[in-house]
Write a protein that binds this DNA or RNA. Structure first.
Lengths: 248, 248
DNA sequence: GCAAAAGTGTTCGTGGTACACCCATGC
DNA sequence: GCATGGGTGTACCACGAACACTTTTGC
């Protein structure tokens, strides 16, 4: 984490950041065939929130998103998609954040920049659970994984944001699988079996898929290259390995 | 137009609006089977821009969009969709807007709020050409229709915004046709023929569709109710009229 | 041989394409 | 009658669903 941003809560003016504009992230990860997202926990408050961040004055919006995502996960080269911008007045509720800041020993005035109204750009990301190093931001005490089924109540409209992110992600699965910005590539080894790819799909969609249909559909997309077989030592036919075709 | 917003350019602080946040609108209209969009013209500058606006401090983002859209077109109850938020630094170019303001006899300082960096939420709208009353905003001299094929070069990244709006619109046509928020309903009479609906599709997609296939596809969606025939006086079979089924 | 997982084949229904045909209407 | 546009029928193909069958592997 850069020293530049590590103490933004002390900066009562929010200098260096675009005012009133935030980003919220729904960061999906995979662990044992479960879909999880990263939440920030705040001690002594019973509050939970999506990881978020702000945009620097000299920074592209989407670059800011990648920067903050790197700060929370330790990862670069993440699949990231902007999906909606949330700007209801109902987001504007000073209570939760004031509670959080007070639990941190701060006593913010009503016009502290963090307590002002924010419009927030929503992003979702897909990351490799094993490679991630979840890191809380300066205001939070913990950054941990929660399964979607066991999500606690989140601050403000963050539950709605998660819902919309998941809808968008599921709707875009097929359309953004291939090419040079595949969502799946960073989540799999360079070479993978069809079964592994199918598991990924099933985890995201939250439902089982038919094996034969899945295989044919994937092969029909012309985005996979078949490699040698993988002898894993299992008592069964060795599956082929595949890799995404990179077209320049 | 409300007196409240009619002179926002005089307000050198932009008081009452969320700072740094704008909206840009791609307003599609239909005229003689052509797809057009509304552009603002600025006299003596050779500059063109999408209609835009700002969000009041006590206003939901999406409500602000409806308000501004009403100001530019005179219409309420418009089909409106938020599609992307543009936040590149390359948007931050004082030149065009300063030129515009100077052409208006203003001499804005470098830190005039309108010359600061804006992140802009993109919306597209579909409106009934015949009912619209295009109205320029306080800084522009004209608000007129341009066909997509004859678009001039627009300010900043506005050409990209149009491109993305059109892509999104076309991708969503089928998905958002029916229901209580149909994009097509406000563009057609209460009862319409299949041919009229097909023309609408063809205009938006920019390509001809097959008549028989279109009819069956539409009827198969179970969103149309067949009414009586329409005797238009033409020397041919009278077409049925249809209306969208409203399901409460 | 047997269980387990992988790959492929077959059948079926659906939905789109392409084309054809008939129907209604006003001149 | 005839041109014009509207509605429907039919043949075909692509694709997904569902199921079956075969292949490969380690025990």
């Amino acid at each position: 984490m850069s020293g530049n941003e590590s103490r933004f809560e002390q900066n009562s003016e929010g200098a260096g950041y675009l005012p009133g504009l935030a980003m919220d992230f729904v960061i999906f990860g995979f662990d044992q065939d479960q879909l999880k997202i990263l939440l920030l926990e705040y001690r002594n408050t019973n509050l939970f929130a999506l990881p978020g961040g702000f945009v620097k004055e000299n920074e592209n919006l989407n670059d800011a998103a990648r920067r903050v995502l790197g700060e929370r996960t330790g990862l670069a080269d993440i699949y990231l998609d902007q999906f909606y911008t949330f700007g209801d007045l109902s987001r504007y509720d000073q209570e939760p954040l004031r509670t959080i800041m007070q639990a941190k020993g701060m006593d913010p005035k009503d016009d502290h920049w963090l307590l002002r109204r924010f419009v927030s750009v929503g992003y979702y990301a897909l990351i490799d659970f094993r490679r991630a190093a979840p890191t809380p931001d300066p205001l939070s005490d913990n950054c941990v994984w929660y399964t979607l089924e066991n999500l606690p109540a989140l601050m403000l409209d963050h539950n709605d944001i998660v819902k919309k992110a998941l809808e968008t992600l599921r709707a875009n699965l097929d359309r953004k699988l291939g090419g040079n910005e595949s969502w799946a590539a960073p989540l799999l080894a360079k070479a993978f079996t069809m079964g592994e790819l199918q598991k990924l799909y099933e985890t995201i969609l939250g439902q089982k898929l038919r094996r034969s249909g899945f295989q044919r559909k994937m092969l029909g997309l012309d985005i996979l290259e078949r490699l040698e077989k993988q002898y894993s030592g299992g008592a069964h036919k060795a599956p082929y390995l595949y890799q995404f075709i990179i077209d320049k």
